[in-house]
Amino acid sequence: MYIHIGEDLNIRAKDIISILDKESAKHSSLVEEFLKHHQEKVINLSKNPYKSVIITHDQVYLSPIASGTLKKRSSQINIHEF
């Protein structure tokens, strides 16, 4: 199943490693270091300040959609798979 993460982009739910809210990402030195290390893989989908960070195997996305909304979407997908 796919999850819409912003700007007409859908990614496979099973490819998602982590979804972080903006505040957690900003206040964590580990996440900050991770983003700097993977800067060439970061794709900003937000025209305004991003609301969440989505980490996959291949890319890191800065999404305009809140992490809570993305969590709800992923939960709905899991229900529909059964």
Rank of each mutant, 00 (worst) to 15 (best):
H37V: 06
D58W: 01
V60A: 03
I43F: 01
Q59L: 12
L70D: 08
K51P: 04
K51R: 11
K22M: 05
I19P: 09
L35D: 01
V31Q: 03
V31L: 07
Q59K: 14
N44M: 05
S18M: 14
V31D: 05
S52W: 01
K71A: 13
V60N: 11
E7L: 09
E7S: 06
D58S: 13
L70P: 08
N44A: 03
K71V: 00
Y50K: 00
I55M: 12
I17Y: 08
R12I: 11
E33L: 14
S18K: 15
R12T: 12
E40F: 04
R73T: 02
H80F: 01
K51S: 08
S29I: 15
I17Q: 12
M1W: 00
S24L: 14
K72V: 04
K41N: 03
K72H: 05
I43S: 01
H38M: 07
S74F: 07
S67Y: 05
S75Y: 02
V53A: 03
I16H: 04
I65K: 01
V60Y: 10
A13F: 09
I65D: 02
E81N: 13
K26F: 01
I19N: 05
L35G: 03
V60H: 10
N78C: 06
I65P: 00
D21K: 07
S74L: 06
S63I: 08
N78V: 07
